[in-house]
């Protein structure tokens, strides 16, 4: 960075004004969600609104984080389901993805197949949903975590392959050749040489996969019907559509459901952004 030219005053003002506006646009909905979760029901039904709560109300969080009552159970079960499903699907996607990425990168697998893989996740899920529904129903795995884990794996694999392929492509191939000459087989080479080198990319892929699976709604809505498999997005949709009239409860569910992805996104920001952007900017 060597642009040492000083900005004219009016441009400086414009810059900071735009930044303030941007910050407001980005932050306002999030802050409001947080405020709603902590405001008392009376504050939330004033016209016009009581923006800053007259008193802080943590009761919904206590309610939701308690296994003993109905809402808490529904919420915590859904969180747990989401955690199990997203983690398992991400793990499957990583393993299958790394192997396939290696085939595309180093074993001349056809790029047309790669494109077919990518095309599967670009198709709308409505083109798969009905046959999957019948198949799962015949197998008796409707409303189980397994069915969602399988579906999410299929959703994450192409994307994992693509991310890892772009990262393996840029490794010097001679290093793998050296390992093979030294007597290592493909899997050994992958495990001991390739994977340690692309560890950051694997991390990014794992995070992005987890976030994508955590976010999924359509399959979960259709394949799950009760606490045994319902994921957090479906639970939120239920909360917001159902008997709950207190906005604060809905907001608290939203806040809690956002905690894992937001933490991941903020902590691993550099990782994730490079993973996300890598595919489109660098190729």
């Amino acid at each position: 960075m060597h642009s040492t030219i000083k900005r004219p005053r009016h441009l400086s003002c414009l810059l900071y004004a735009s930044l303030t506006l941007l910050a407001f646009f980005v932050l306002a909905p999030v802050l409001w969600l947080l405020l709603m979760s902590l405001s008392s029901p009376t504050d939330l039904t004033k016209v016009p609104l009581q923006w800053i709560p007259s008193q802080w109300d943590f009761s919904r969080y206590a309610l939701l984080l308690d296994w003993q009552n109905g809402s808490g159970k529904r919420f915590l079960a859904a969180m747990l389901n989401s955690l199990i499903i997203a983690t398992s699907a991400s793990f499957i996607a990583l393993v299958a993805g790394v192997l396939a990425a290696y085939a595309f990168s180093r074993r001349n697998a056809s790029m047309l197949l790669m494109f077919a893989f990518l095309a599967t996740i670009m198709m709308p899920p409505i083109t798969y949903i009905l046959p999957l529904y019948s198949a799962f129903s015949e197998l008796g795995i409707l409303n189980t975590k397994v069915s969602l884990i399988i579906c999410y794996s299929a959703m994450l694999i192409p994307f994992a392959i693509w991310l890892m392929k772009t990262n393996i492509d840029v490794l010097p191939e001679e290093i793998e050749h050296a390992a093979m000459i030294e007597g290592a087989g493909t899997i050994y080479t992958l495990r001991k040489v390739v994977l340690p080198i692309i560890l950051p990319a694997i991390g990014a892929t794992a995070m992005l996969s987890f976030l994508t699976a955590w976010d999924e709604f359509f399959y979960a809505l259709i394949f799950s019907s009760d606490l045994s498999a319902k994921t957090i997005p479906v639970a939120i949709a239920d909360f917001s559509a159902g008997r709950v009239t207190d906005f604060g409860v809905i907001a608290s569910v939203g806040v809690l459901a956002s905690v894992p992805p937001v933490l991941i996104a903020l902590f691993f920001q550099r990782f994730i952004v490079s993973g996300l952007v890598g595919g489109s900017v660098k190729g």
């Binding site: 980005v26 932050l27 909905p29 999030v30 409001w32 969600l33 976030l211 955590w214 976010d215 709604f217 957090i232 997005p233 939120i236 949709a237 917001s240 809905i250 907001a251 939203g254 459901a257 956002s258 992805p261 937001v262 991941i264 996104a265 903020l266 920001q269 994730i272 952004v273």
Partner: peptide, 14 residues
Amino acid sequence: ILPWAIPTIVNAVT
């Protein structure tokens, strides 16, 4: 990154 990290459903509810 905040808006992107918040789940779609939470976004819709918010």
